[in-house]
């Protein structure tokens, strides 16, 4: 087999292998990662209800 033919095959093999690797990387990036439940719970946590002077004043006025 001539040297030209061999180098051409090697070139094609290299192109094919790098293409497959690239596609795999892209696919891994494209798949959305599910947000862990714990992280979602943490995000949803808020300061919430506080027994502030403002709220106590509201309750007082509502009693009238």
């Amino acid at each position: 087999m001539s040297k030209t033919k061999l180098s051409r095959r090697n070139f094609l093999l290299t192109v094919g292998a790098s293409g497959a690797a690239g596609a795999a990387t892209l696919a891994a990036k494209a798949v959305p990662q599910a947000q862990p439940v714990a992280a979602r719970e943490q995000k949803r946590r808020t300061a919430g209800y506080q027994d502030s002077a403002h709220i106590r004043n509201y309750y007082r006025t509502a009693k009238v």
Binding site: T46, A47, G48, Y49, Q50, S52, A53, H54, I55, Y58, Y59, T61, A62, K63, V64
Partner: peptide, 30 residues
């Protein structure tokens, strides 16, 4: 508003205090 230590604007704004909002135990007592 809750994180600011306040209650919903609708309940606080109610002129006749018909609309009550807040801790269920407290408003039920009222």
């Amino acid at each position: 508003r809750l994180a600011q230590g306040k209650l919903p604007a609708c309940a606080e704004m109610c002129s006749t205090k018909a609309l009550l909002g807040g801790d269920g135990d407290v408003i039920a007592d009222i």
